[in-house]
Nucleic acid binder design. Structure first.
Lengths: 253, 253
DNA sequence: TCTTAGACCGTACAGCATACGGAGAATGTA
DNA sequence: TACATTCTCCGTATGCTGTACGGTCTAAGA
C-alpha cells in the first residue's frame, strides 16, 4: 500500500517509450508476432484505473484483461512505474487544445477547465505523485500550449512558468473534493447529506460545541446551503476567480 | 502499490480512537498489562514515514520498531487505514497555533506558512489522499483556528470556508515540488542542476526545438535563474502573494 | 479458586511486483 | 534447406504486503 509515483524508471528507457510514436518504432522484429502492443497495455491500465480505481490496477489484472499471463505484460513495458508514466502522458493527450480566447481571464479559465475536466475523466490522476511529471509528448505539448496561452501578455518568462503552475496546481484541490464526494456516494449509495446525518450525532457528542463555535456555525451554514459540508464545483469557481483576480492585480502592478 | 487514503475504517471505531484522550481511556482492563500504547504505535509509524517514506511503512516494520511481533500491533489499532488517520491528526497537532496577526494578508500568510511547515516536516502527508480529512481533535482544532483567523473581516460563513480551503489547498503544489526536489538530490547525491545536465542531451535530441519554442525559452530562463527547472520556495511565495491579492480584491468588491 | 477479558502472537492466505530461465516461433543468413 | 539468432510468451519462484483466525497465557474480578 505505498503510493504510485512517476519518474521512477530508467530515464532512457522511459523516454524512448514515451516518445515511441514520434521516434518511429524500431521495426525489423525477428521473433513471433506480438499479440498486443504498448498502447493496448496502456489502454487496459487506464480502463482499469478509471473503472475500479488505481488501487485495483495490477499487472495481473492488466494481463487478464488482455488475455495473457501476467509476465507477458513485461514484454511491452519494463515495469509498473514506467507504465504509470505512460498512463499520465496518454491522459494529457486526450483533449483538444483550443485556441486562446480573448482576455487573460478567459485564457486562464481555459487552462483551469481543461485540467478540471481531465481530473474528472481520470480521477486516479489525483492519487498519483506527479511532482515530476513524465516528459512525454502529450505532457510537453500541453505545457507548451499553456505557456502559449499567456504569451505576449506582459509576463516575464519566469512569471509565465509560475502562473501556469499556480493555476493548474490550484485545480487539484477542488477536483479531489469533487471526485471524492462522487466516489463516496457511488460506493455507499448514500448522498453526502445522508452520510452527514448518519455521522452527525456521534460527532456532536464527541466535539464539544463550545470548543468549536465557528466551525459549528460555518458547517451549519454550508449544510443549509448545499446539504453537505462543501460544494466542490462551487469551490472551484470561487477559487479560480480569486486566483485570476490575483494574477490580474499582479499584471497591473 | 495502491494509494493510502484516510477515512476508510469503521467511522465509530476510528472516531473513538481519534478522540481517545479527550474521551478518557476505558480503564479497568482485566488482562495483562499493555507493553506499548496507541501513541507509541503512531509515533513509530510517523518516525518510519518521516525517515524512509510512506512506502516503507508497514505493520511489520512498526512491530519491529516496537519490539513486538506483527500481529500485536493490531491490539492497539484496528488496521492500517485507521492508523493513517491517527498519523494525520497527530501531525496536525504538533505546531503551536499563534494568535492572529494584524492584517488579513498577514493572517492568511500565517495559515499558509503553518501548512507549508507541516508538509516539509512530514512529506508523506503529500502522498496521502486527505480529501476527507479525519475528524480528529487536532485537525478540528486547526480548522477552528483557521476560521478564527479570518473571523470578523467581512466574509460570509460560506466564503470563510472557501477561502481557508483555497489558501491551504494551494500550498500542496509548491510543497510537493519542494519535497520532491529535496528527496531527489538526497537520494541521488545529485543537484537538480546536475540531473538536468545529465538528461538534457537526450531530451534535446528527442524534443524538436521548433515544436516547443516557448517551453525552451522559459526553461532556459528558469535554468539560468535557479540552475534548475523551478524554485519551489519562490513558487510558494509568488503563488501565495497572488492568492492573497485575489482574496483582497474580493473583499473590496 | 474459578471465570473471564484481553495481550500477544503463530500460522496461514491471498495478493502484489518482478527476477530468472526455458520453450517455441519467426526471421535472416549460409 | 539448415541453422543461428532474436524475440514472445510464460511457468516458477522469491520476498514482500495486510490481516483473518484461533490459541496461549496473564492478571484481575467474582
Amino acid at each position: 500500500m505505498s503510493t504510485e509515483s512517476t519518474g521512477r524508471g530508467e530515464p532512457d528507457r522511459t523516454l524512448h517509450l514515451l516518445w515511441r510514436e514520434r521516434l518511429g518504432e524500431p521495426v525489423g522484429s525477428r521473433g513471433p508476432k506480438q499479440r498486443a502492443s504498448v498502447d493496448a497495455v496502456v489502454d487496459a491500465a487506464i480502463a482499469i484505473a478509471d473503472e475500479e480505481g488505481i488501487e485495483a490496477l495490477s499487472m495481473r489484472r492488466i494481463a487478464e484483461r488482455l488475455g495473457m499471463k501476467p509476465m507477458s505484460v513485461y514484454t511491452y513495458v519494463p515495469g509498473k512505474a514506467e507504465l504509470i508514466d505512460l498512463m499520465v502522458d496518454r491522459s494529457a493527450g486526450e483533449q483538444p487544445l483550443p485556441e486562446p480566447a480573448g482576455s487573460l481571464r478567459a485564457r486562464l479559465e481555459q487552462i483551469a477547465r481543461l485540467t478540471w475536466d481531465e481530473f474528472l475523466r481520470h480521477p486516479w490522476l489525483l492519487s498519483i505523485d506527479t511532482s515530476r511529471p513524465p516528459l512525454g509528448p502529450n505532457v510537453s505539448d500541453r505545457w507548451e500550449w499553456s505557456l502559449r496561452m499567456i504569451e505576449g501578455l506582459g509576463f516575464s518568462d519566469l512569471d509565465m512558468d509560475q502562473i501556469i503552475t499556480l493555476v493548474t496546481g490550484f485545480v487539484a484541490g477542488p477536483a479531489r473534493a469533487y471526485v471524492d464526494a462522487d466516489r463516496l456516494h457511488r460506493a455507499t449509495d448514500e448522498t453526502d447529506e445522508e452520510w452527514w446525518e448518519r455521522n452527525a450525532p456521534l460527532l456532536e457528542q464527541i466535539m464539544e460545541p463550545e470548543r468549536y463555535p465557528i466551525s459549528g456555525r460555518v458547517g451549519q451554514a454550508a449544510g443549509e446551503e448545499y446539504g453537505a459540508p462543501g460544494d466542490p464545483e462551487r469551490a472551484f469557481e470561487f477559487g479560480l476567480a480569486r486566483v485570476i483576480d490575483g494574477i490580474e492585480a499582479y499584471i497591473r502592478a
